[in-house]
Amino acid sequence: MLSFIVVVFLLAGMVKGMIGLGLPAVSMGLLSMLISPYQAAALLIVPSMVTNIWQLFAEGQVLRVLARFWTLLLGIIIGSIWSIFPNLGQSEFHSEALLGAMLLLYGLYGLVAKQIPNLSRYAWILSPLIGYLGGALTVATGVVVIPVVPYLQSLHLQRDDLVQSLGLAFTVSTMCLAIFLQQNPVAHLEIDYLWSVMALIPALLGMWLGTRIRYKIAEQKFRKVFFCGLMALGGYMLLSH
């Protein structure tokens, strides 16, 4: 089991190092094949938090990004508290199927979206709504991907601003997920954050390797393989549950 966790977070870290996102999606998708989504989400907390904070503060000017996207973050917080979806702790809810559908949609979106429409003029109303859905899906699947990532990409931000805004959204959603897991324990599924701390090591190593590989492989080629892989994994999770 330990070797599997190491491989998963090494791979997920490499993906994040190469394209700036994907650690939660890859790790949750693979871990949920062997353990419950609730346990997988708990394992994800420390690696996700540390790598997201790293991504957030790498470019500086955090207050400027915070001032621009505070309504998005507020929506994430509200969505994680009052979710319209069943959550990870409900045994009758197959969160693996919902996560699989999200990965499938995200992979399809990444492959077919050539020219993303510019929605920046509607950001004042879309940010809190998108944030709410992102927060609600975070406590339902353990991952904030759809619709936050496509939405931030649709604002046509500068590359550094996009990476930093993603880091901010991921950081807040991970904090909300950690609080949710702590306040909603599941019988017979104890949270052991020591395993999560241990998972940080291969995740950071993977990020370092990913940044090295990024300069040797064409980004577009890798993104195509990555999104195809997400679709395959999402399809498997959706059909098997």
Rank of each mutant, 00 (worst) to 15 (best):
L129C: 14
L155Q: 11
V139R: 08
P128N: 05
R159H: 13
V143W: 04
A178S: 14
Q158P: 06
M175T: 14
Q158I: 14
A178T: 06
C176K: 08
L181N: 12
A169H: 04
L162T: 06
Y151P: 08
G167E: 10
T138A: 12
L137W: 06
Q164I: 05
Q183W: 14
H156T: 13
L126Q: 12
P128Q: 06
V144L: 13
V186W: 09
V172Q: 09
N184L: 07
L177G: 08
V145F: 04
I146F: 06
Y132G: 02
S165C: 12
Q158R: 15
V172R: 03
L137I: 04
P147D: 04
N184C: 03
L168C: 13
V172Y: 01
A178H: 04
V144N: 14
V148W: 02
M175Y: 01
G142R: 02
Q164C: 03
G142S: 09
V186R: 14
L152C: 09
L177P: 12
S165R: 10
T141D: 11
H156R: 12
Q164N: 06
L137N: 02
L155T: 08
L133Q: 05
V145H: 07
A169Y: 00
P147A: 07
Y132I: 11
A178W: 00
A178M: 09
I179L: 15
F170V: 04
V148M: 07
P150V: 01
L129W: 05
F170N: 02
R159C: 06
R159F: 10
I146Q: 06
A136I: 11
V145P: 03
L126C: 08
A136E: 13
Y132K: 08
S154M: 08
Y132C: 02
A140W: 08
F180E: 06
L168P: 10
S165P: 07
V139G: 01
G134W: 02
V163K: 15
P185L: 02
L133M: 13
P150I: 05
L137R: 00
T171R: 07
V163E: 03
L181E: 04
V149R: 02
S173K: 05
L133E: 06
G135E: 02
R159L: 14
G134S: 13
S173A: 15
I146R: 11
C176I: 03
G142P: 04
I179H: 12
P147S: 11
G135H: 10
I130T: 01
P150T: 11
G134N: 03
V149K: 01
G134R: 03
L162N: 08
N184K: 06
V139S: 02
L166K: 09
L126F: 09
F170D: 10
G134H: 02
V143T: 12
L168F: 13
L162M: 00
L166R: 00
Q164G: 03
Q153T: 07
D161A: 15
Y151H: 01
L152N: 10
V144Q: 13
Y151A: 01
G167N: 05
S127N: 12
V148E: 03
L133Y: 01
V145Q: 12
N184E: 11
G167F: 01
G134Q: 01
V148C: 10
Q164Y: 00
G142E: 07
P128Y: 13
V144W: 03
I130H: 00
Q182M: 15
L155W: 03
T141S: 11
G131F: 03
Y151G: 03
V143F: 10
S127P: 10
P128T: 11
D160W: 14
L137T: 05
V186E: 00
V144C: 12
P128L: 10
L157K: 00
